[in-house]
Design a protein around this nucleic acid. Sequence first.
DNA 1: GTCTATCATGTCTTCGAGTGACACGTCGAC
DNA 2: GTCGACGTGTCACTCGAAGACATGATAGAC
Lengths: 197, 197
Amino acid sequence: MKEGLRERTRRAVRAELAAMATDLFARQGFDETTVEDIAQAAGMTKRSFFRYFPTKEDVVFDGIDLTGESVVADIAARPADEGPWECLHQVLRAWQEEIHASERALATMRLIEATPALTARLLQRRTEWRRRVSDALRSRPGAELDPYTADLLTNAATAVLDAVSGQWARADGDADRRALLDRGFDQVRVALGTGRA
Amino acid sequence: MKEGLRERTRRAVRAELAAMATDLFARQGFDETTVEDIAQAAGMTKRSFFRYFPTKEDVVFDGIDLTGESVVADIAARPADEGPWECLHQVLRAWQEEIHASERALATMRLIEATPALTARLLQRRTEWRRRVSDALRSRPGAELDPYTADLLTNAATAVLDAVSGQWARADGDADRRALLDRGFDQVRVALGTGRA
DNA sequence: GTCTATCATGTCTTCGAGTGACACGTCGAC
DNA sequence: GTCGACGTGTCACTCGAAGACATGATAGAC
């Protein structure tokens, strides 16, 4: 077997650490929790913490990146005759449902929104994420998209997502995210003409 | 007079500090420059530096926020019969020209793009900036925009801006930003119908 | 089973950003 | 002129992050 005791314990400790951290973050806030607090709660040294996570922030984003992967995969899996905008609409709708369904993901989102440092990191990550989504769009069979138009589509899609989040926050969580997303994707339209005029 | 020697020297020292800092950042990079380097170059202590700027990052963004202010003001100044999308187009076109014309602003942009920590801060600030632009759009006389649609418009506009920046970076600075912006605003369309369907 | 290279961990140390506390000097209002 | 507010320097501190080194445990070869 390729998964020896080493990897298994490592993953276990990582999960333990993440659990301790999210618990402490939720209780006393991100900035108010020191790495030493987390390490001590898990029965180890501060130095050892950093052997599992490169930064304190990474504990929060652990497990979030997977969803980004899935978006790229989903794009590739959509029918080829579907337009890119509709493709983004469907994929992101599914992605949003997934987030909405997970209590843990929602709690993480709330923590991120409440912590400026984490918000900054999230936005930073999203830049990378968008580049990959844009590439995925261009790689679809039959898609003749120039890089600029692909970026335009991707950025516009995140524009809709942001607007949904904003409305969601304004309504204090009492809003139909799915309906808002559909409405956003309907209101915003991206033309594909590149060599046309 | 309301401006005593205290305020005058304070502003002078601030400018001096900013000048020293940008010089050092340009020469050896942001991360490679310590606050102590800057303070020492200006003939003061690290502690005193933090009495002028709350963080090292704030030195870079000092003087950048003014442009954000001007965008909001410009929106209010546009003719009332102009549609919101066209309004954003014109205002952001002017804003882009302004940045493009200033050698100092361009250098700052390059520094920000080359430094992940600064990029994150920029994105964070833009969140706040977008909220204000969205509000400005809704405050225009005769504009009947619900918050969601206003956000949609604002976010879509920054989506275009980002795509322009991306293309600009891809072309290694050899691109007609104005033409790209116009093309982006032409390709992306935002419908205003809120109670329509 | 033993032996060895690899890996995880603890301890110590260092660096840089940012803050608090205290003392001293200067500006400015009166 | 006095006195209080403010700016500054100095020292000490916290916290995140990383490097160096020693030690103990483990996996895999023999």
